[in-house]
Design a binder for these strands. Structure first.
Length: 857
RNA sequence: GGGCGGUUAGCUCAGUUGGUUAGAGCGCUACCUUGACACGGUAGAGGUCACAGGUUCGAAUCCUGUAUCGCCCACCA
């Protein structure tokens, strides 16, 4: 025998208990998952790991999708790739901001000076939050997220993610801020980023602008209000609106050009009720004759259609809703009469909701409200994290071009989408539809504090007004900068806010503006050129289907502009975990299921098994039954390995040359097929298929093959016994490696019983190797033999006999009888049959007659 | 209103370019304490493949339509 590696160390009673703690430590010490950064690009497999939000908690959905990625990482590593598998933490943005405020009892005020000795209050008072500088605030964020990250890391390690923990990043750390600012400055220099003052979707709670990608529609109750406008001839025209409070902001009425009902009105002017403002009546194709009365009131701004009309018809601007969501103090132009000003004064300072009630009262008093408001339900735009409807407010914002206003850019980005290898392929249509449906550029500025600040200052003129058209920009070498605490070149800090001095841009970037650079941040862009060349563009972007329009698309945009390429070759899109509530699991269990609880109850490998059973892009139920199956499989691997190694004894080595028996060769031939199939499946990002085929083979291996050769394997004298033992070990060597990506703990445990080193550093099984060992082996021999064995078992089971019961005679007929005949001795031993007969016949399927002893009948 | 995906056993899901009697696991039932495994083993029952048409010698599979679930998008007066 060859290949003897070590003496056996098979435990008497194999167990999953404590297996995670043991191997997490071993892997950490051995560095088996370390990225070899001397590997050339073609031998590298790089992964753009999604950074989880650390201010939240890990959900079972994270466990699900991160396991998918890990199976791929492990497969590629075994295929000889140096795997670049970093971990990021998303601590940038509103969720962290809120958590830090509550945790420390502070709030960020960019106007406060940095205090290097600041310490948060010992007892946080949520009602009296201490105002601190942005830099101090970010330092607290760093401190708290560092704690959160430790918790996350320990769960990831316990789950068995083969991450190289030397490569981590956080989306608010210095490298990320520098990368986000550098990328922005380059976008700006190339004209891909720009500032504009324009109507912007605005969340009045958070008091920040919101991007198209962050919107969601929610059904809200509302009401049509029928309102009379007054024609010059003394007649009226009735409009219907759900937003009567915007009446003072009305700038025009609009009807469809083909709508004959209003043809005579178009081109004239009418007066608004109550406020008496003269507004034009215009025609536009977007006016829908079937909605309301067919003629619409255009305001500054009720919805995005208003913006379109305002822009295309070049209408007046009469804003009345402020940044805080309340009606502004001063009436807009056109509200001149004393009555109108009095009416407006009743609205000033009110919330939109209150203003609506008051306008209705005013309209009733003036007789211009026709009938009662008609209740309806309609979709209203919300910020996905907000709970009040968005308003549209004109503000100065930063944008990055994304094809929303430029056909050439849009086409280029669609081409990038086509270039990307999507798994599953149909996910590409979500990307295409999103890009095709964009209606504006990407708004990246947010009026918040915790985030990457724009690296921009503005000179102040003699009156103290910012000169926005002459921004002051830092040198790339100085990044990251904070314009709220750093002064621009050529100025000193005491000139901040003074006429002739400067002011920093107060805004921060949208969190996606940073996370869209995750491949660059993790890969050492402009920081570690050698690393970057070896990992970028990355091989794989794994992520959820819900953030194709945000994270995936934004990352493509940034790489397209900066590198003229895709950021990665392949995107692997995971599905959802179906809500346990719908399965009534949390109710019947009476408590919430946390990942760590499941990991402890079923073992990490069992949870991974469940996760790996879910295909990419397919929604999967949280199914504890599958976890149980995973646990059972893990234990079976321990026990089957123990058996095979014990039988082989001290001579445990896999010598293919010793495999001579047809049944053994048949098993290896079947194994070669499985290896081939699993390999192809993995290469196609179909981890589920690889697992299924491996698992199916393994169970048949245990149930049938192991039982068939058990007796023979104990035979120390004959070559047939040696053949069985060698075949068992050859198969075991393959199975341990095939399961390694899915069940890394069990795989390394059983591997350690008979081999040195980690199974995770072993080469992935090569089908050709097993094909060679199988020689003339025919899978049909194993199939036919197993079928006969099953027939014998069935006879015993139906007779309610023990599987050990003796069988008098077995007759095998049919076209596959010859295949089974070659393993007659094994069948006789496994089935405890005294006599076996085979009658080959070409015309019938396999039929087995089992004769039990008369006494047993 | 448009798009994407799903609908197969009580449950969770396979079903590879259309090809005999549709598969697996869980659960259920019966039996077996067999020497790797009682955290086990063996076997069994269980399906009009959402519905209606169509193409075909043949349809879970292809086409058309419908229903239903989930998600995404939409100019929501």
């Amino acid at each position: 025998m060859t290949n003897r590696s070590r003496s056996l160390r098979v435990p008497d009673k194999p167990s999953l208990d404590g297996i995670e703690a043991k191997w997490v430590d071993v892997w950490d010490e051995s560095g088996v998952y370390h990225f070899d950064r001397t590997a050339p690009r073609e031998r590298v497999f790089s992964i753009d790991t999604p950074p989880p939000t650390v201010s939240g908690s890990l959900h079972i959905g994270h466990v699900f999708s991160y396991t998918h990625t890990d199976t791929v990482a492990r497969f590629q590593r075994m295929r000889g790739k140096s795997v670049f598998y970093p971990m990021g933490w998303d601590d940038n943005g509103l969720p962290t901001e809120r958590r830090v405020q509550n945790y420390y009892g502070v709030r960020c005020d960019p106007s406060v000076a940095y205090d290097p000795d600041f310490a948060p209050p010992a007892k946080p008072d949520p009602k009296r939050q201490v105002p601190i500088s942005r830099r101090n605030f970010i330092e607290l964020c760093d401190r708290l997220t560092a704690e959160d990250e430790k918790v996350f890391e320990s769960i990831w390690r316990r789950l068995g993610l083969s991450v190289d923990w030397r490569h981590t990043y956080a989306t608010i750390d210095g490298n990320s801020r520098a990368a986000a600012q550098r990328a922005f400055l380059r976008n700006l220099a190339r004209g891909e980023a720009y500032m504009a003052e324009a109507p912007t979707l605005w969340d009045v709670t958070f008091r920040t602008a919101v991007a198209q990608a962050e919107l969601e529609d929610r059904e809200r109750p509302s009401a049509y209000h029928k309102i009379s406008f007054h024609r010059p001839d003394g007649g009226t025209v009735e409009i219907e609106t759900t937003r009567p409070e915007l009446l003072p902001a009305c700038v025009a009425l609009v009807a469809h050009p083909d709508d004959h009902r209003y043809a005579d009105l178009v081109g004239t002017t009418v007066r608004t009720p109550v406020f008496g403002v003269e507004v034009p009546v215009r025609a536009h194709r977007l006016a829908d004759p079937d909605k309301g009365s067919g003629i619409a009131m255009i305001c500054t701004f009720g919805d995005t259609t208003d913006v379109t009309w305002w822009r295309e018809l070049q209408l007046a601007t009469r804003p009345i809703v402020g940044w805080d969501g309340r009606i502004v103090a001063d009436p807009p132009a056109g509200i001149d009469s004393a009555e109108a000003r009095d009416a407006y004064a009743r609205l000033a300072g009110a919330t939109v909701h209150t203003a609506r009630e008051r306008v209705v009262e005013l309209l009733r008093a003036s007789g211009d409200l026709i009938g009662d408001p008609k209740p309806i339900t309609h979709p209203v735009k919300f910020y996905e994290k907000g709970d009040k409807p968005l308003e549209i407010v004109t503000t100065r914002q930063w944008y990055i071009r994304n094809g929303g206003r430029d056909a050439a850019v849009r086409d280029a980005l669609l081409a990038r989408g086509a270039e990307l290898d999507w798994h599953p392929a149909h996910m590409r249509s979500r990307y295409d539809h999103w890009v095709e449906g964009l209606n504006g550029d990407w708004l990246i500025s947010r009026q918040r504090f915790f985030g990457v600040p724009f690296p921009v200052w503005y000179p102040l003129d003699d009156d103290g007004n910012p000169r926005y058209d002459e921004p002051l920009l830092p040198d790339e070498a100085a990044l990251p900068v904070d314009p709220s605490s750093d002064a621009p070149a050529g100025y000193t800090e005491d000139q901040r806010g003074r006429p002739g001095g400067f002011t920093g841009d107060p805004d921060v970037m949208d969190t996606w503006a940073t996370s869209s650079l995750s491949p660059q941040i993790a890969g050492g862009w402009e920081r570690d050129d050698d690393l970057f060349r070896r990992v970028f563009p990355m091989d794989l972007r794994p992520q959820g289907q819900d953030i194709i329009r945000t994270w995936l698309f934004a990352t493509v945009v940034r790489a397209h502009f900066e590198h003229g390429s895709l950021p990665w070759r392949t995107a692997a899109i995971s599905g959802w975990i179906l809500d346990p509530d719908r399965k009534k699991m949390s109710k019947s269990k009476g408590n919430v299921v946390t990942p760590i609880d499941l990991l402890e109850r079923y073992s990490s490998d069992a949870i991974r098994y469940w996760a790996a059973s879910g295909r990419l892009g397919t929604d999967t139920a949280l199914d504890e039954g599958q976890m149980k199956v995973g646990r059972r499989l893990s234990i079976k691997i321990l026990n089957a390995s123990k058996f095979a190694l014990s039988v082989a004894g001290e001579a445990a080595a896999a010598d293919p040359a010793a495999v001579t028996e047809p049944l053994d060769r048949a098993m290896l031939a079947a194994l070669a097929d499985v290896v081939e199939d699993a390999t192809a499946a993995f290469e196609n990002y179909d981890h589920t298929r690889a697992l299924e085929h491996t698992e199916r083979f393994f169970w048949e291996f245990c149930d049938d093959y192991l039982e068939l050769v058990k007796a023979r394997a104990y035979d120390e004298e004959s070559p047939a016994g040696a053949s069985a033992r060698a075949a068992l070990l050859v198969a075991l060597s393959a199975l341990h490696r095939l399961f390694a990506p899915f069940l890394p703990f069990v795989a390394d445990e059983v591997w350690s019983w008979w081999r040195d080193g980690s199974v995770h550093a072993e080469p992935w099984p090569d089908a050709a190797e097993f094909r060679a060992a199988a020689q003339d082996g025919e899978p049909a021999v194993l199939a036919a033999t197993s079928e006969v064995l099953r027939a014998v078992r069935k006879a015993k089971s139906e007779a309610k006999l023990s599987m050990r019961a003796e069988v008098e005679r077995v007759v095998v007929r049919g076209k596959n009888a010859g295949s089974a005949r070659v393993a007659a001795d094994d069948i006789a031993a496994a089935g405890r049959a005294a006599a076996l007969e085979f009658e080959a016949a070409d015309d019938t399927d396999l039929r087995v007659e089992v004769t039990l002893p008369a006494a047993a009948e």
